[in-house]
Computed example of a mutant assay.
Amino acid sequence: MKRLRLAVAGLLIASLSACTVLPKSQVLSIYRLPASNLPSHDASADWALRVNKPYSSQLLDSTRIAVLPPGDQISAYQGVRWSDRAPLLLRDRLVDAFLDDGRLKAVSSDDSRLQADLELDGDLRAFQSEYQNGRPAARILLEARLVESGSLRILASRRFEVSQAASDTTVPAVINAFGQAGDQLAREVLEWTVQQGQAAQQK
């Protein structure tokens, strides 16, 4: 019995010792996509819009912040993550832009699946930091489609691509560049959607 107790004690000490050599979990810094409020307008469009999460590759459908250094190798910034997957970040940024603008009667996302007249759909082709002349730049490429709800008929489509150079190579500077690129893309998508949607409703 004494030997058994000694053996058990030895096992406990060994297991405790093993725990001390395990690597410490990495502390991650979580970033949201910075956004600024767009100018507001009076409601002028009597139709509702649903903004869908854009389709994307497995690389972009992640919380990792993708980076393309010189060459063809795709990597990600270490120790940092987006607060959500990139397609969701962009979708929510677009929803916020339409809500801040105020011209549409109602705006929702595909999470709620509320009734809408038109849907903003698309493919997210790029949402990454790319090095240009030794300096990182945030690049966003969205193939947008304005779709009629119910029939799913494509009313209009357009490619939106923006690139914003970071002020330096640090991660906060890159995140800030993503915020500026997201703002520019949101403004362009918003104006195009309102214009195309109004034209479709008047037919």
Rank of each mutant, 00 (worst) to 15 (best):
H41K: 13
Q198S: 12
A156W: 01
A116W: 04
V147G: 05
A199W: 03
G122W: 00
E188I: 07
L118I: 10
L155S: 12
P70Q: 12
A173G: 13
G179K: 07
A181D: 02
A166S: 13
P70N: 08
E161L: 10
L190W: 07
R158P: 00
Q164W: 04
D100L: 14
A97S: 05
F178N: 07
Y131P: 13
I65M: 10
A186N: 01
G79M: 01
L185D: 10
E188V: 05
V80P: 14
L185H: 10
L11P: 06
L94Y: 03
E119D: 09
Q58D: 10
D168N: 15
I30T: 13
D121P: 06
A144M: 03
E130P: 09
R187F: 03
V51F: 00
Q202E: 12
T169C: 04
A138L: 11
L49P: 15
A138H: 14
Q195D: 12
A14P: 15
D183A: 07
S56E: 03
G197P: 04
R85F: 05
A66W: 01
I13V: 14
K203L: 11
L90F: 01
P87W: 00
L60C: 12
S157A: 11
S57V: 01
L142I: 06
G182N: 01
R153K: 13
W192I: 11
L22V: 11
N52K: 05
L155P: 03
P54F: 00
N176P: 10
K105T: 15
S83R: 08
A181P: 10
I74N: 08
L38N: 09
G10D: 02
P69A: 02
R64L: 06
L94S: 05
I30F: 07
I175N: 09
Q202R: 14
Q132W: 13
S129W: 02
L68R: 11
A97K: 02
L104Q: 15
P136D: 00
A9K: 04
A106Q: 11
S25H: 05
D92Q: 03
Q115D: 15
P136C: 00
L89S: 07
A173Y: 10
E119M: 15
L185S: 07
S149C: 08
A166L: 06
L22A: 15
W192E: 11
R32M: 04
W192A: 11
L152M: 10
R145C: 02
T193Q: 03
L68W: 06
V51Y: 00
V51G: 13
P136S: 00
A199Y: 02
L59M: 11
V95R: 04
P39A: 15
R3H: 06
L33A: 11
L190Y: 14
G122N: 08
S129A: 09
N37E: 12
A200Q: 12
Q201C: 13
N52Q: 04
I140C: 11
V51L: 15
Q115N: 15
L142N: 01
A86T: 03
V21E: 09
S109Q: 03
